[in-house]
């Protein structure tokens, strides 16, 4: 029988965790069940919905399409690193202002994808914003308010240098 366990060390929101896991454990399950970081949501678990999006070494990644063991030595950021209920992060604040969430299920994934977008993508036009958001599915908002929030954040950031 296979499944030799593997010990990994990974930084999550700046805290280094060491754990011994089965190779088949998904990064999303590791974050949620082993570390208790349930802010990262899982919708489809096959790469389609984007709810599980985290940052892997500064770039967005589907945590349901990665194994925890593949994150060895990496820096993961999750929505828990963005802010707290008392002190919302900037993207969270923009979502609140623009009513960019209703049930909130998709929100952590959107926020992490948007973090990557704001760091690396032009976002000068609504078309660019919509294309960048196209990998995340929201069943509630109709996207309009999410686009509004990102438009404001992109304007505030200014052009990429």
């Amino acid at each position: 029988m296979p499944e030799k366990k593997i010990t990994l060390s990974v930084s999550v929101n700046g805290v280094v965790h060491t754990a011994t896991v089965e190779p088949r454990m998904l990064l999303s399950d590791f974050l949620r069940h082993a570390l208790g970081l349930t802010g990262t949501h899982v919708g489809c678990e096959h790469g389609v919905c984007g709810a599980c999006t985290v940052l892997l070494d500064g770039r967005s990644a589907r945590s349901c399409l990665m194994l925890a063991v593949q994150a060895e030595g990496a820096e993961i950021e999750t929505v828990e690193g963005q802010g707290s209920v008392d002190r919302l992060g900037r993207i969270q604040e923009a979502f609140r202002q623009h009513h960019a969430l209703q049930c909130g299920f998709c929100t952590p994934g959107f926020i992490m994808a948007i973090t990557d977008m704001l760091r690396h993508h032009p976002l000068e036009t609504d078309d660019q914003i919509r294309e960048a958001l196209s990998g995340n599915i929201c069943r509630c908002t109709g996207y309009e308010h999410i686009v509004n929030a990102v438009r404001e954040l992109a304007k505030e950031r200014g052009p990429l240098t």
């Binding site: 029988m1 296979p2 499944e3 030799k4 593997i6 089965e22 190779p23 088949r24 454990m25 998904l26 399950d29 069940h33 082993a34 678990e45 194994l67 063991v69």
Partner: peptide, 11 residues
């Protein structure tokens, strides 16, 4: 951590 989606494998 409950159930896992993938079947077991080595890595």
């Amino acid at each position: 951590v409950g159930e896992m989606k993938p079947a077991p494998f080595d890595y």
